[in-house]
Design a binder for these strands. Sequence first.
DNA 1: TTGTAGGCGTTATCAG
DNA 2: CTGATAACGCCTACAA
Lengths: 343, 343
Amino acid sequence: MKLGQATIKDIAKELNVSSSTVSRALKDYPGISDETKRKVKELADKLNYRPNAVALSLRKSKSFTIGVIIPEVVHFFFSTVISGIEEIAFANGYNVILCQTNERLDREKSSIETMLSNQIDGLLVSYSKETTDFEHFSKLMKLEFPIVFFDRLPDLPNSINVTVNDYDGAYQAVTHLISQGYKKIVHLAGPKNLTISKKRREGYIQALEDAGISVNENLIVECPSGTEKESFDVTIKLFEDVDNRPDAIFAHHDIVGAGAMMALKSIGLKIPEDVGVVGYSNWQFSSMIDPPLSTVSQPGFNIGEKATTMLLDMINNKNDYKKEPVHVVLDTELLVRKSSVRL
Amino acid sequence: MKLGQATIKDIAKELNVSSSTVSRALKDYPGISDETKRKVKELADKLNYRPNAVALSLRKSKSFTIGVIIPEVVHFFFSTVISGIEEIAFANGYNVILCQTNERLDREKSSIETMLSNQIDGLLVSYSKETTDFEHFSKLMKLEFPIVFFDRLPDLPNSINVTVNDYDGAYQAVTHLISQGYKKIVHLAGPKNLTISKKRREGYIQALEDAGISVNENLIVECPSGTEKESFDVTIKLFEDVDNRPDAIFAHHDIVGAGAMMALKSIGLKIPEDVGVVGYSNWQFSSMIDPPLSTVSQPGFNIGEKATTMLLDMINNKNDYKKEPVHVVLDTELLVRKSSVRL
DNA sequence: TTGTAGGCGTTATCAG
DNA sequence: CTGATAACGCCTACAA
């Protein structure tokens, strides 16, 4: 800010009027002579006047800025969500402050503190994998501070949530595998404390039960870190017993699925002939790997849009979400590709 | 901000001291009795006092916020850069306001206006594909407003720049292809107005010349949008003439490379036996496609870190970059995978 | 139609 | 050791 930005005062001084007159002229208030308005606007233009949003924030106790807490930008899914958030925020004159937690709770907490210091008007949150206690959120919610959670939902009453139908996505994926004749289906699951993981697991279990296949807990293996390497190792282990191998994998996201595919190839198993694989999230790469990975597509952009729209509604009291818990569920879509089709 | 946040005044009133005393006590100024300090801090704690960063910004004419302008978050490369930016900013007590331009100039301009209104202390920019005139930047630079450009560099004297060595990356990639015996190497190039495109093209040309291969302009085809579909179509066309086909492709990024690979497969050509392919940027998917795509890896995270470090130096006058144009060039790394190895 | 004064939360300066 | 005051830029009730 060495910009030497012109202020209302500067304009007032030069024109020999008061700053209130300038302020009003700039906003086309009634009861200002056209002559004055013209002069003021002209000079403002000439001086390249730009209202100081910080002063405005202070004055109005409103910053027109929303905070976004996400685990990691580099996750394709989250980057699409951010796009949606940005779009709506921008269209409504709001700024977006971004903080990634890198899946760490301490980072999450301190980011929120900083954002609050900066007087954000509301918060969009997808919390970290380390977060199991939600008091830092509930504290704010009790004070009626606007928060919308997306993708990862807290175990809190009255939270406002936007997710996809993870249960249904998983159910569809597993049902599809069953329809292709796969019988012994592994679930490479996500961290237990995430609702999305729970829901996907439930969908997996229900699909099996509805097909009359008994659920074997040994076939549900957690891949908490979600890296390719982790799922590679887990998969190798699962397929160790040559006489008793699973014949399909439902992975809780595409990277995990891709890691599993590499493992399968490395031990000479053919996809989809020997083993079927379905992932989750429709990452950018999923259609390009070999064979193309079937997956459950989540509408990330829409999630961002919807969550932001709701948050702005809350901020501007257009809608009273307080009366009941709200949970918007967007539909997933099963994308069937080669990795899971053998009929 | 229905938070009813406690202010210094509140503390002062409750303790029957002046706000200046509270302010000083909170910051451990000398000349405040330990007793007072204790009381103030205790109460501040109890009231969950949080300094109002907006008021501070106004007072100090400094917001501890930097703006970031990028084309699109969903580009893997940019998301890694953001990670690097965030990391350094956060570590130094700075916030990050993010705006994506979606490759549109009007959006770029208005984003900058908004950010300036919000009194950002500096700007990190990778401009849009539509941007050919840089006056909206040079205007600010003349006023000594701190700006660091990364990845896409403007045609401006005295700009502070961080990029990778695109020329060298391309040179290495093409030299590698030549070393594998490929002779008729296509370049699927990026938009002409981007320096990165120019540099990569130059590297491509130089590598050919150094190997004594004459450059055929028909083999340099622009893929401005950079989508899979576009490069698919372009590739199909390039290989139409069965008797006179190229035998290798150097793509200006991995998506373009992947699109080309799909096209090659669709017309029955084998990679790398018939045609070798090298991409650029090392997208997440590149190691997972079939065959794994050779590529030039750019250190996105490091670019973000470096650019932010430099920007903060400028903001805090720790370093005087004004005296001469600065261009930090980080090294790329050629990742040789199956798509380009046939010897 | 315009001006004056006060305040949003904080801190620097000057005065006790 | 502590307090009063002014100022950052803007808006608005009240006054003229």
